[in-house]
């Protein structure tokens, strides 16, 4: 078989022409020879001076290579640098860390075994649902919950209305009723908007001036077209004015166009269903 250039035989024995195989010096330095073969190598070296010279040279070279080197002790510098970066722990501190880990593991074990115990005694405890239900059921449940919530808010608003009603009663005679739309909006219903003039009474003014309270004037006529975005078909409309302001409504057709103290068109709103 043709051998590649530069490679050597895996066999640690050199075979000379017409002679029996003998172990090579390289195989010895490769630590590939067993004690018997080493003996054979030594025999061959006794017979060949060149072989022995080669062996001695290599051995001497490798001895020099293995000769101990006086290495400087850098342990202090290393420990100092590592100590600066991550710090060293004393025996007590390491024990505390160990105890802490042990305690954490014990807690976890306790929790897991507790859960297992509960599950064993009451297998139903961890079951989310017996069977899957249709989404419509969930939606229906959500609807009823929302309705209940709104009802609760309505109750609160009614309570608020009862508190406010006496103040509204002192206002202009044309005001027929009052309602609270939400926490900061008041509604005053008037029956004849054309002649409605509402200088706010001290009592009502105080009430209206609290926070961002606005007055909503409600009239029982169709709103003019230029008061968008009001719905033209609404039978009850509302105008909101700033707190503490009085307003005049001489006629239904031109109440909002004049004067800074008139109603703010941007605040126009229609939520007739919420107004009594």
């Amino acid at each position: 078989m043709k051998r590649r250039k530069g490679t050597r035989s895996e066999n640690p024995m050199d075979v000379g022409a017409g002679s029996k195989p003998r172990p090579s010096v390289d195989a010895y330095f490769d630590r590939e020879l067993c004690p018997d073969t080493i003996e054979s190598l030594l025999d061959s070296m006794r017979r060949s001076r060149t072989e022995r010279q080669r062996f001695d040279d290599t051995q001497s070279m490798l001895d020099d290579l293995r000769a101990p080197i006086d290495a400087p002790d850098v342990s202090c510098r290393i420990l100092g640098e590592v100590g600066e970066r991550r710090g060293w722990l004393t025996t007590g501190q390491r024990r505390m860390v160990f105890v802490g880990r042990l305690a954490t593991a014990a807690c976890l074990l306790l929790v897991v075994s507790g859960l297992l115990l509960v599950r064993r005694n009451n297998p139903q405890a961890f079951r989310a649902a017996d069977a899957t239900g249709p989404v419509s059921g969930v939606v229906a449940a959500t609807g009823s919950e929302a309705e209940a919530g709104i009802r609760a808010i309505g109750d609160q608003l009614r309570t608020f209305e009862r508190i406010c009603e006496p103040a509204v009663a002192d206002a202009a005679s044309s005001v027929t009723s009052c309602d609270s739309l939400c926490g900061k909006v008041r509604a005053v219903t008037v029956s004849a908007p054309q002649d409605f003039s509402m200088p706010l009474s001290p009592g009502l003014g105080e009430w209206l001036g609290a926070g961002n309270v606005k007055v909503v004037v409600v009239v029982s006529r169709t709103a003019p077209g230029d008061l968008a975005p009001a719905g033209a078909d609404e039978t009850i409309n509302q105008w909101m004015i700033a707190p503490g302001q009085s307003f005049r409504l001489p006629s239904y057709d031109a109440p909002m166009a004049t004067g800074p103290r008139q109603m703010n068109v941007a605040d126009w709103t229609t939520s007739a269903g919420r107004i009594r």
Binding site: S75, R86, W88, L89, T91, R94, V97
Partner: peptide, 13 residues
């Protein structure tokens, strides 16, 4: 690894 300085010293040495 647990922070024992003497063990680290032995490893270095």
């Amino acid at each position: 690894a647990a922070g024992d300085k003497s063990a680290a010293t032995k490893l270095i040495k």
